[in-house]
């Protein structure tokens, strides 16, 4: 019975990945472009969820991790004329270093203090992007040329300004993230993180080094966020300081809460729903933030588990 459920869950996630791949052949033009973008945002949401959903640490500073990747990739391509691939790899490295440093400091706090500390660090980073306007062009931001976004891999050359290449790259990143998160959720590490979320003191008493575990969670979450930021700038060619504002941290929180914190697919679902809700409502009213606000309050009051969290609670207990 247990293996049967495991298989069903495996099939479900595989089906989502496959479905997104097949979707490219059917989607009309606009959705094709929009889904590409939302897939990258979904990677960001998955990263956020690893820390918030599984480990129970609410960060209000993930915009920083996202923009660390965004700026590392963007600035190296723009100023040093690195290739897209080099820039991408370097942003993983820088994201990793940032996550280790920030995690080591911020994890000395917990609860409300953790939220505020991450918020403050993120604010410092945001101000930094303005302070170093000479290099970043601050709020105006900078644009990567089309030529800078071509790279060769295994003797084939790819052009990231080509929509079909972009779709596949975004899909690949999202698929890998889903698989990665799925594996973590099923692993000993994942179960230990959930244990910390449920009761940190008890986990500690069971002999786990909770500080190290939480640090690992911050590192995974932060680095993956940087990866999504790097992918964003390389695919869509723009980096600016608005991505470092608290708005983008809240967006990640919103995606995760809506879709279901602590579920692999929840953040993806949340990102898709939120994006299209704003996209569609903004055609009729400029009050889409009002709607976002009402949804937030409504969710936290009546569906604190989010959509997939609620589904898991009621019907599918096996959902990772």
């Amino acid at each position: 019975m247990k293996t049967h459920r495991k298989l069903v869950s495996l099939y479900l996630h595989a089906a989502v990945i496959l479905g997104l791949f097949l979707a490219q052949f059917f989607l009309p033009d606009y959705l094709y472009l929009a889904v590409t973008r939302v897939m990258i945002l979904s990677v960001f949401a998955i990263a956020y969820n690893i820390l918030f959903g599984y480990t129970g640490l609410l960060s209000l500073g993930h915009a920083m991790f996202f923009s660390v990747g965004l700026y590392t990739a963007g600035l190296t391509v723009y100023h040093l004329e690195w290739s897209a691939a080099e820039a991408f790899v370097s942003s993983i490295g820088v994201g990793l270093i940032f996550s280790i440093l920030l995690g080591a400091v911020a994890l000395r706090t917990s609860g409300v203090a953790f939220m505020i500390v991450t918020l403050m660090f993120s604010q410092v980073f945001y101000l930094g992007t303005l302070y170093f306007t000479t290099y970043t062009r601050g709020d105006e931001g900078l644009v990567l040329s089309e030529g800078a976004r071509q790279f060769t891999f295994l003797f084939a050359s790819f052009d990231l300004s080509d929509p079909s290449v972009r779709y596949v790259v975004a899909w690949l990143l999202l698929s890998l993230s889903i698989i990665f998160c799925y594996v973590i959720a099923r692993s000993r590490l994942g179960r230990a993180l959930v244990a910390i979320r449920e009761n940190e003191t008890r986990t500690q008493m069971l002999g786990y080094n909770t500080f190290m575990l939480k640090l690992v969670a911050v590192i995974i979450s932060g680095t993956l966020s940087s990866i999504s930021g790097a992918a964003y700038v390389l695919l869509f060619a723009y980096a600016g300081s608005s991505f470092a504002t608290i708005q983008y941290s809240i967006d990640a929180l919103l995606y995760t809460l809506l879709g279901g914190a602590g579920t692999v697919l929840g953040p993806v679902l949340g990102a898709f729903l939120m994006f299209f809700m704003i996209d569609i409502t903004s055609e009729y009213t400029s009050a889409y933030l009002l709607i976002a606000g009402i949804i937030l309050v409504f969710l936290v009051m009546y569906f604190p588990r989010g959509i997939l969290g609620e589904v898991r609670h009621r019907w599918l207990q096996w959902l990772p």
């Binding site: 609410l58 409300v112 939220m115 809240i250 929180l253 809460l257 009050a287 933030l289 009002l290 976002a292 606000g293 009402i294 949804i295 937030l296 309050v297 409504f298 969710l299 936290v300 009051m301 604190p304």
Partner: peptide
Amino acid sequence: ATIVATIGILYIIQQ
């Protein structure tokens, strides 16, 4: 939960 809810209230008032 209250942080999330008050973020929601923030948006509602602002808009």
